Simulated assay, not measured.
Amino acid sequence: MADLLAPGLDVLFVGINPGLWSAATGWHFARPGNRFWPALHRGGFTPRQLHPSEQDELPRHGLGITNMVARASARADELTAEELVTGAQILTGKVERYRPRWVAVVGVTAYRIGFARPKARFGPQPELLAGARLWVLPNPSGLNAHFTAETLGAAFGELRVAARQG
């Protein structure tokens, strides 16, 4: 699945890995029930809610998407720790190359494993990634019942405020 990358993005969103639906369509966060696109809009990143098929509009808003692991799976918990660690290394190279101001990983467990930060929490992280500020967001998958559309939108909104401030 192709990355949505451009030099100097405001925020690069990092999914854990493509789901089977996304792999089939070629669109990030494509499965009906995934709450990424509504959260992106509710958080103030886009003027309207985009459909996954409109993902190519994101760079015009200073946004991009990549995945930590390229391999598609039905569930993110099918990934191995080794895949997440390798994916974090590959992500670091992408950030070095494209230099986004912020990197937002959507999934705290994947972030904890991939970057060896077992106590990481949601929100801004104290360390940088290849010069970019880091933020961890909740996983917007419909399987993540701990967060509602409203609380996801609020979490994305906190990142949006921080990204506007620098």
Rank of each mutant, 00 (worst) to 15 (best):
R97S: 10
V69G: 05
M1G: 14
T151A: 01
Q89S: 14
Y98F: 06
A74Q: 13
P52G: 11
L128P: 12
P38N: 10
T148N: 01
R71V: 12
R117D: 10
F122N: 07
R112M: 04
L63N: 02
E127K: 03
F13S: 05
P52F: 01
D56A: 14
V103N: 11
P59F: 11
E82Q: 09
V136C: 09
T148C: 03
A74C: 09
R133S: 06
G8S: 05
V136S: 15
G15W: 02
L50F: 14
G44K: 02
W37P: 05
G153M: 07
F13M: 09
A155N: 11
R99I: 02
K119Q: 15
R60E: 12
L20D: 15
G87Q: 02
A88V: 05
A74E: 14
T86Q: 12
R164H: 13
G43F: 07
F115D: 06
P38D: 01
S22N: 06
L50V: 08
A162V: 01
N144G: 04
A76W: 08
D77G: 12
L134W: 05
T151W: 00
Q55V: 10
I113F: 02
G123H: 01
E54W: 07
N17R: 07
F29S: 02
P138I: 03
L50C: 12
R160F: 00
D77H: 15
L137V: 07
V85S: 07
L40T: 04
I65D: 09
G142V: 08
R121Y: 12
M1N: 09
E96Q: 14
L128W: 05
L129S: 08
V161Y: 08
A24H: 10
T66E: 05
Y98D: 02
R160C: 03
G123T: 04
G107K: 03
F147K: 06
T25F: 11
E57K: 00
M1Y: 08
H61L: 14
Y98H: 05
L129H: 10
R160M: 00
R164S: 12
D3K: 06
E54C: 14
A6Y: 09
E96M: 06
D77T: 11
R60Q: 13
T92P: 07
A120L: 09
A163N: 06
A74R: 09
T25V: 13
P52A: 07
L137F: 11
G43S: 08
L152V: 03
S141K: 01
V69D: 05
T80C: 09
G33P: 00
R35V: 07
D10M: 02
P118A: 08
E127C: 04
E54M: 14
A72D: 15
F115I: 08
A72E: 14
T46D: 14
L12F: 05
F115A: 03
A154D: 12
G62F: 03
N17A: 09
A163D: 13
N67C: 01
T86K: 04
R35C: 07
A145L: 12
P18W: 00
P59C: 13
M68A: 09
V106E: 15
V108H: 08
S141W: 01
E54I: 13
A6Q: 07
Q165G: 15
G64Y: 03
